[in-house]
């Protein structure tokens, strides 16, 4: 749904570590929070809503938020909530709370420090726990079903997947991609995002911020829409993303012009599906941040996409940018956030 432009992204920062440096969640998050707040020009006392996200099954820590409170502006107590999952949904909640008039500014944080050596096993726990998860598919096995369906539809071929990979992973030609062995046909290792990384992101939202802040122009949130699809993979047309289509229609994006589009596609074929589902008439730049294939910190990637879209508006002169986030097997749940330079 689109709304009156009263809320803007006024600060954003993110950080990705490809190798563990032994830091705790709090140590991972602290510099990112400081940087986002500094960019916003707001101090900690100005934050009335704090929404955080992490993936506890990914990190193996129950109640991980209890360990990061020292970093959050929560004293004196504020409206703070935490969710398990993708940080883009924490952004959604913060936006809703500001729309509802709960505060004038919000801080959104996501952090992830996977302890599991192989997240592809953990992600199977998103499937039906009685009938599907016990089969213990790896997440790329499930994604490969979707990729196969897409190729079988005739809309795309393996070389199209390789072209996506080549665009996102520097120094890799489509030919070099196609020369690699399958991990789950038709997916090859570079088709799958690199999840062996830690990440943190922080984003500051403000109601009616000044026209120009420390971070540049405010990136006004024109709307956020998200939808979920059935959990039964066999009941979905996996070659489409009907939840993205519905969200895009709800936001008036179909047939529109988007200057910058940041897509959260953990697999190469999913970028094609999501871009098609958004259905813009023209996209100026697709994934100028580089996308998530090279680094996909669980639960942080989507928030980074929205932050990157906001930065495109506030720093790089884009008039309209869209950030996308996904959650679940085969793009089951999708969120779109529209950011604009003018009120």
């Amino acid at each position: 749904m689109t709304v009156e432009h009263r809320i803007a992204v006024v600060g954003f920062a993110s950080r990705i570590l490809h190798a563990s440096d032994g830091s705790s969640d709090a140590e991972l998050l602290a510099p990112v929070v400081d940087e986002a707040l500094a960019a916003s020009g707001l101090d900690r006392a100005g934050i009335g809503v704090v929404c955080t996200a992490s993936s506890e099954l990914g990190s193996g820590i129950v109640g991980s938020v209890m360990e990061v409170y020292d970093v959050l502006p929560c004293w004196p107590p504020v409206t703070h909530t935490h969710l398990e999952g993708e940080g883009a949904f924490a952004l959604y909640e913060a936006w809703v709370r500001l729309l509802a008039g709960e505060a004038d500014a919000a801080l959104v944080c996501a952090y992830s420090r996977p302890l599991a050596r192989d997240l592809s096993q953990v992600l199977a726990l998103q499937l039906d726990p009685y009938l599907v998860a016990p089969l213990a598919p790896r997440s790329y096995h499930v994604a490969a079903l979707q990729a196969r369906a897409l190729l079988d539809s005739g809309r795309y071929a393996e070389r199209d997947l390789a072209a996506v990979v080549s665009a996102r992973r520097t120094g890799l030609t489509p030919g070099a991609v196609l020369a690699q062995p399958y991990v789950a046909p038709p997916l090859r290792e570079p088709d799958c995002s690199t999840t062996e990384c830690a990440g943190a992101a922080a984003l500051v939202l403000a109601v009616d911020p000044p026209a120009s802040g420390a971070a540049g122009q405010p990136a006004w949130i024109a709307g956020i829409d998200h939808r979920v699809e059935t959990s039964a993979l066999g009941m979905r047309d996996l070659t489409r993303s009907v939840s993205t289509e519905a969200a895009s229609a709800g936001l008036g994006l179909r047939g529109s012009v988007i200057d910058v589009l940041e897509v959260h596609a953990p697999y190469s074929h999913q970028e094609l599906i999501v871009v098609d589902a958004i259905g813009a008439r023209r996209v100026g730049a697709l994934n100028p941040s580089g996308g998530v294939l090279p680094a996909d910190p669980l639960g942080v990637s989507g928030l980074i996409r929205i932050g990157a879209a906001a930065s495109a508006v506030s720093r790089d002169g884009a008039h309209r940018a869209v950030g996308h986030a996904t959650n679940g097997p085969c793009l089951q749940q999708n969120l779109l956030c529209v950011l604009e330079s003018h009120r």
């Binding site: 099954l57 992600l123 726990l125 499937l127 039906d128 726990p129 998860a133 979920v228 959990s231 959650n327």
Partner: peptide
């Protein structure tokens, strides 16, 4: 999520 071991149960329960 770790209580039942179902990750993001809003997906399975949609």
């Amino acid at each position: 999520d770790m209580l039942e071991g179902v990750m993001s149960p809003e997906l399975y329960l949609a």
